[in-house]
């Protein structure tokens, strides 16, 4: 696959296949950072792909497909958080613990600590930090995506970072 994915002229099926191959993993990870539940994150991204497929012929600029998908994932992740009850229902019907927080992990204790700390932030703080630092979005983009003012983005970013630092304590300094 070309390093720079050009989807001009591709039909919806082909576009989905290519975008899936290139970006599925990263998009699920983005959603996991926002919703903290891998199965729910996969659902979110799957739905985003299906939605994009349906709108493919109306996308003016196919090269912006990734931007479209990211936005859809952020929007849908926010919906999941707003309707957490759905996720809780999901957790009840799942056959075994599949949440992100459970279970031993390769990355060890620091990763677990960061996950736990992220959960303690407010939804807004977490969203701003993820979009700012994981996606490298500008304050204006974040304000748009989260439907808050640029001033609020700044404030949430500041408070969120400070809270994260405090919650992580020694983990924050540990560079290993």
């Amino acid at each position: 696959m070309a390093e720079h994915l050009s989807l001009r002229g591709a039909d919806a099926d082909a576009a989905v296949e290519q975008l899936y191959a290139a970006h599925w993993r990263q998009l699920v990870r983005l959603s996991v950072l926002l919703v903290h539940d891998q199965a729910a994150a996969e659902d979110v991204v799957q739905d985003a792909f299906v939605e994009m497929h349906g709108r493919w012929s109306r996308l003016r600029n196919p090269d912006k497909a990734l931007a479209y998908l990211r936005q859809a994932v952020v929007n849908r992740s926010r919906s999941v958080l707003r309707h957490r009850v759905v996720v809780e229902k999901h957790a009840r019907t799942s056959p075994s613990g599949e949440g992100l927080v459970d279970g031993p992990t390769v990355g060890g204790a620091r990763r677990d600590a960061v996950r736990a700390a992220l959960l303690l932030l407010s939804e807004r703080q977490r969203g701003v930090l993820v979009l700012r630092h994981y996606l490298d979005w500008s304050e204006a983009q974040i304000a748009d995506a989260l439907d808050i003012s640029p001033g609020s983005v700044k404030a949430h970013a500041h408070r969120g970072s400070a809270a994260l630092r405090e919650l992580l304590g020694d983990w924050w300094e540990d560079e290993s």
Binding site: V32, Q46, V114, H133
Partner: peptide
């Protein structure tokens, strides 16, 4: 870095 580390720990299942 910390967010990246958390994200890297996620291995998405296949939904293709």
């Amino acid at each position: 870095d910390l967010l990246g580390e958390v994200a890297d720990g996620v291995e998405p299942g296949d939904r293709l």
